[in-house]
Amino acid sequence: MDKIKEKLQQTSQATRSERRGRFISFLALILILVVVIAIFWFVAAKGLATFFQNHISVWDFLSGRTWDPSVKGANGKPEVGALPMIVGSFLITLLSALVATPFAIGTAVFMNEIAPRNGAKILQPVTELLVGIPSVVYGFIGLSVVVPFVRHVFGGSGFGILSGTFVLFVMILPTVTSMTADTLKSVPRYYREASLALGATRWQTIHKVVLRAATPGILTAIVFGMARAFGEALAVQMVVGNATLLPHNLVSPSSTLTSVLTEGIGNTVMGSLQNNALWSLALVLLIMSLFFNVIIRIIGRKGELR
């Protein structure tokens, strides 16, 4: 009797394997969390040194227009004005999202609503391939095709926000497209059936019912694409011109946070002000990507409520 009791009270093999499995998978997750926190800690510690060790005011950093950390400005402090880069990054991100959105929505609608068979067969691999082309290669095509094109058509030297926009447009297109396609897929079939039954045409169904129902998802896709555009470095750096000037127009050379960061990091000495200032740029990037994520969550929550 006692033996049976003991056996029944013992945890079974299944329970033990359950606990073990749960523990191992939890460990994996915690490992990722540790990695993220370590990178955060690292970037924040380096980036904040500009303000705490070198005593640059945060306001001067965010609103200054001259970036020349090895030279002292009028107020006796090194010139670390990041405004041109911040403006450049935002302009390039917004513009490329603006150009990419209609293409992405159009392609996703085509794949889902107009020609699902051919769409899935051809466009799906096409968008996945666009993801797979390395950013170095995008950069060189940008340099040898986009820049001369912009120079001939729009004037200027060809380097600038506009060329960056064209390159980033192609780079974020697949991300936005595939995420939009996923949202369209999740719009229930009976929405479409009801609309068609009311006598609406396909176009009326698409833009009055399907797109309307998918709006939160599409917005998430766009913001996600913008987050990628904001963090892209190598390809943009090759075509944007890297002049730390506020852009006068779309074809004047300007710079982004990532382009100045990658360009300068090898030429500065770890721990010096020049180096810390670059890490402050990385910190701005990190905070911005946090911000984009918060926006995505808010949109997602609003979408859920309806």
Partner: peptide, 27 residues
């Protein structure tokens, strides 16, 4: 790029330390 050795040498010996205008940079 700012801090590059080639740029430092050029500004010191060809431009004689003359301050340059902010312009396009490549690394």
């Amino acid at each position: 790029a700012q801090g590059s050795g080639t740029r430092a040498t050029f500004e010191k010996w060809a431009l004689r330390g003359h301050r340059v205008k902010t312009a396009q940079e490549q690394d």
